[in-house]
Design a protein around this nucleic acid. Structure first.
Length: 467
DNA sequence: CTATGGCACGGATT
DNA sequence: AATCCGTGCCATAG
C-alpha cells in the first residue's frame, strides 16, 4: 500500500523538481510560454489582477515599483538594488476571456502592424500587378516574420510569372525588418548578410558560410565547416560570432535589439531582455535599478473557487482537486525560486561589474561563474543555468547576453581595438608588436592570442590594414 | 626572414 | 563529461 502510493506520487514530484531546475534555464520568452501552458493545463492556476512586491509582499500598482521597498532601500545604502515588478507594457492586459493568453494577444498586435509596415515601404518599388502578391505574402507571415508557402503555387494561383513572384519576395526581404518574408532563419540571415556586405567590409568567406553551412554553424559544428571550406576553425568561430552579433534569425522580433544569444543549445532566438539595468537617476552613480522581467509571476494565484469546491466535492474528485492545487502551488513556488535566484545573481553581477556597466566594455573584470556561485552559496550549475540563454539591457539601451559579464577577454579585445584604431595607418602594428603594446598596458597575452582576438573582432591582419 | 594562420594540446570552466 | 580558451610549434605566404 505504501509502495503504491509512492509510485503514484513519485512521477509528479520528480517532474516538478525537474521543473524547478528547468525554469531557471528559461528566458523571458520561454518562461512566458511555460506559464501559459501551465495556465491552460491546470485550472487551479489563474491569473490575478493584483500584484504584490516580490520582496515585501505588499500590494503595488501595476507596472510600478513597490513604493515601500523603493523608499526604504534608498535610505539603506547607495549601492542598493531595487527589484521591480514585470513591466506592464510587456504584458498588456487582455480584454478578452480567461482562456486568452496575454502573450498571444501581444504578438497578434505586433504581427498585424508588421505587414502594413512592410507594405508601406515597398509599395513604391513594385508594380501594380505585383501588389496582390506582396499583399498575400505579407498577410501570411507567421509570428517570426516568415513566409513558408510555395512561391510556385502562388504564381499559379494568381497567374503571375514565377520570376515576378520571386522578385516581389526579394523586395520584401530587403525591407526594414531585413529578411522578413524569408522561409527560414537561414534565409533571413543570408539576406541580412548580403545587405550588410554592401555597406560594410565583410570577408568573402562569411558569405560562403552563410550560403552553404548555416545549419551546421547553428549546431556549432565548427570543425566540420572548417574542413569543408578549407578555412580554420578560428575563422569559422569569428564568423559565428559576427553572425550572432549582427544577424537576426527572426526578422519579426528585430525591434528588441541586435543580438542573438550565443549561449546554450541550438535554440536561437530574440527575446525580451531578462533583466533591465538602469541608472537610479540619470546623473548619479548611485547604484542601479534592476528589473527582473518575470512574466506573470505576480499575476499568478490559486483559483479561490478551488478551495471552496474542495470542501464540497466527492472523495474521488477531491483527490484531483487537491492534486491540481498542489501542482499550482509548486509551480508558483518554482517561479518564485527562479526569480529569487535571478535577483541574487544579477545583484552580484551588477555589484562586481559596475565599472563595465557604467564605463564600457574596457572595464569588464575577469569573473567566473564558480566565483559567483561561492558568493551566492549555490551550486555552480545553478549559476550556469541562470546565466545561459539570458540577456540584460544596460542603461545605455544595449541588450547583451549575460555571459558577457563572464567574458575574460572582452576588456583586452576592446583595448586592442583602440590601439589599432589609433595606430598610424601607414605602418600598422604587427601582432607581435600589438602583444608587447598590450603587455605595457597590463595585459599579458601571447602573440598568437592577439591574432585570435583580432579575428574575433573581424580586424584584418597588419599588411591588409594599410589604407 | 617576418608575419600570420592552422592544428592540437592542456588546463580551466561549465 | 564536454566545451572553451590561451598557447606553442610548425607551415606557408608575402
Amino acid at each position: 500500500m505504501y509502495q503504491r502510493q509512492f509510485q503514484k506520487i513519485q512521477p509528479q514530484t520528480t517532474a516538478h523538481l525537474a521543473q524547478t531546475m528547468s525554469l531557471l534555464y528559461l528566458n523571458t520568452d520561454e518562461l512566458n510560454q511555460a506559464i501559459n501552458k501551465e495556465l491552460n493545463e491546470n485550472p487551479a492556476l489563474i491569473t490575478s489582477e493584483e500584484k504584490r512586491c516580490p520582496k515585501c509582499n505588499r500590494l503595488m500598482q501595476p507596472g510600478q515599483a513597490c513604493s515601500f521597498c523603493l523608499s526604504t532601500s534608498q535610505k539603506e545604502q547607495q549601492d542598493s538594488i531595487i527589484f521591480l515588478s514585470p513591466k506592464e507594457e510587456f504584458y498588456p492586459k487582455s480584454s478578452s476571456s480567461d482562456n486568452e493568453v496575454y502573450a498571444d494577444d501581444f504578438l497578434g498586435q505586433e504581427e498585424a502592424s508588421l505587414d502594413e509596415y512592410v507594405f508601406r515601404q515597398i509599395a513604391a518599388d513594385i508594380q501594380e500587378d505585383e501588389r496582390i502578391i506582396a499583399a498575400y505574402i505579407l498577410n501570411q507571415l507567421d509570428e517570426d516574420g516568415f513566409f513558408k508557402e510555395s512561391l510556385y503555387e502562388l504564381s499559379n494561383y494568381y497567374h503571375i510569372g514565377i520570376e515576378k513572384v520571386k522578385r516581389v519576395k526579394q523586395v520584401i526581404q530587403r525591407a526594414d525588418p531585413v529578411g522578413v518574408g524569408s522561409d527560414s532563419p537561414e534565409e533571413a540571415m543570408l539576406i541580412q548578410l548580403r545587405i550588410l556586405k554592401e555597406i560594410v567590409k565583410i570577408p568573402d568567406y562569411y558569405l560562403e558560410i552563410a550560403e552553404n553551412h548555416l545549419p551546421d554553424l547553428l549546431r556549432k559544428k565548427y570543425k566540420e565547416i572548417a574542413k569543408m571550406t578549407s578555412k580554420s576553425v578560428e575563422e569559422i568561430r569569428s564568423a559565428a560570432d559576427f553572425f550572432s552579433k549582427n544577424l537576426n534569425p527572426f526578422p519579426a522580433r528585430a525591434h528588441w535589439g541586435t543580438f542573438r544569444d550565443p549561449g546554450k543549445n541550438d535554440h536561437l532566438g530574440y527575446s525580451f531582455p531578462d533583466v533591465i539595468i538602469n541608472n537610479r537617476n540619470s546623473e548619479e552613480n548611485k547604484g542601479f535599478m534592476v528589473e527582473v522581467i518575470i512574466p506573470g509571476n505576480s499575476l499568478l494565484e490559486i483559483n479561490p473557487f478551488y478551495n471552496e469546491a474542495i470542501k464540497e466535492a466527492d472523495i474521488g474528485v477531491k483527490e484531483k482537486l487537491k492534486n491540481d492545487i498542489e501542482k499550482a502551488n509548486l509551480f508558483i513556488k518554482c517561479l518564485q525560486q527562479r526569480n529569487n535566484t535571478m535577483q541574487k545573481l544579477i545583484s552580484q553581477l551588477v555589484r562586481l561589474q559596475k565599472d563595465f556597466i557604467l564605463n564600457g566594455e574596457k572595464f569588464v573584470k575577469p569573473l567566473t561563474r564558480s566565483e559567483i556561485s561561492k558568493i551566492l552559496e549555490v551550486h555552480e550549475s545553478t549559476v550556469s543555468r541562470a546565466v545561459s540563454n539570458k540577456t540584460a539591457q544596460l542603461p545605455d539601451g544595449r541588450i547583451i547576453p549575460l555571459s558577457t559579464f563572464f567574458d575574460r577577454s572582452l576588456a583586452i579585445r576592446t583595448e586592442l581595438k583602440e590601439i589599432i584604431q589609433n595606430e598610424q595607418k601607414k605602418k600598422p602594428y604587427s601582432d607581435a608588436k600589438l602583444a608587447t603594446l598590450l603587455s605595457k598596458r597590463g595585459y599579458k597575452v601571447a602573440r598568437r592570442t592577439v591574432a585570435k582576438y583580432r579575428a574575433m573582432e573581424g580586424i584584418l591582419p597588419a599588411h591588409q590594414r594599410k589604407d
